[in-house]
Design a protein around this nucleic acid. Structure first.
Length: 269
DNA sequence: GCGACAG
DNA sequence: ATCTTGTCGC
């Protein structure tokens, strides 16, 4: 009895896991109850017909956090917003740099990155920006997570905003593996499809793997974050993909990295 | 038991 | 996440 706990603690130390992991898991289980896994927003997707009485989806946001190589605790969070109706033009960008001591632990990404992103969203809301995103794409998974509550869902609940999870790599859960998914995508019956459902061994649907660009063998992994169904999430991803990674995420990624470079060099001098 | 494990 | 230029190909 006693030995089991001691061994777990030792292993946790070897992995340099923070001692709060148990609490973190509890927090995830609690917040997960607030997740809304269906469409729950006032706008509609752009369509050929005109429904003049309902607002259309126009502003799609993207968030990401970059880190400095030489100063691993130095982080830069970014929030960008693109205009879906003007060739995904950038209409808003903001950044926050700070030192982060919370480590990255698989399955607990939100405890490292969510606070910065919540800050950026709150700042934008307080400033009453007319470009506040109607939906937010997050660099990380939503439901596609060991406890069904990844960064995209976590951020969606904390900031109460519709979110979509975008993973560039698969978090292996419920029997799902990156090689297994790629085999499915390459299978004859799926040759025509660019999207396949990620159904785990348990039968649960965690998200979807999609070839966002023609000719890209490596898929991106889309999952429900908050207040957006998987079908709608896939449609929105398709509307925002010029390259493999959807533009909101790609722009947030590129720009947070260059912002960090610019600011960090200034600190060393 | 060992390995895998979003960013 | 981060280290990194050129390069092969449509």
């Amino acid at each position: 009895m006693e030995g089991v706990n001691e061994n777990e603690k030792e292993e946790a130390q070897k992995r340099s896991d923070p001692p709060e992991l148990g609490k973190w898991a509890e927090i995830q289980d609690t917040l997960k109850k607030s997740v809304i896994a269906v469409d729950d927003f006032p706008w509609r997707l752009p369509s050929p017909q005109s429904h003049s009485h309902q607002q259309q989806l126009t502003y799609v946001g993207g968030v990401d956090v970059s880190f400095s190589k030489e100063e691993p605790s130095m982080a830069c969070g970014s929030l960008v917003v693109l205009d879906l109706h003007h060739d995904l033009r950038l209409v808003y960008q903001d950044y926050t740099c700070l030192t982060l001591d919370v480590p990255y632990v698989p399955g607990f990404l939100a405890f490292r990155e969510a606070p910065i992103l919540v800050h950026l969203l709150e700042k934008m809301k307080n400033d009453a920006s007319p470009f506040y995103p109607q939906v937010l794409m997050v660099d990380g998974n939503g439901l596609l997570h060991p406890r069904g509550f990844g960064l995209a869902s976590h951020l969606g609940v904390l900031a109460n905003i519709p979110t979509i999870g975008i993973g560039k790599n698969l978090h292996h859960i419920d029997g799902l593996t990156q090689s297994g998914v790629r085999k499915l995508l390459e299978a004859e019956e799926n040759r025509a499809n660019d999207v396949i459902t990620l159904r785990g061994s348990s039968g649960f649907i965690w998200g979807a793997a999609m070839r966002s660009t023609q000719g890209s063998l490596k898929p991106v992994f889309v999952s429900i974050g908050h207040r957006v169904s998987l079908d709608t999430a896939i449609k929105i991803v398709n509307m925002t993909c010029k390259f493999r990674v959807p533009e909101p995420i790609r722009q947030a990624d590129i720009r947070s990295r260059e912002h960090l470079r610019k600011h960090h060099i200034g600190m060393l001098a």
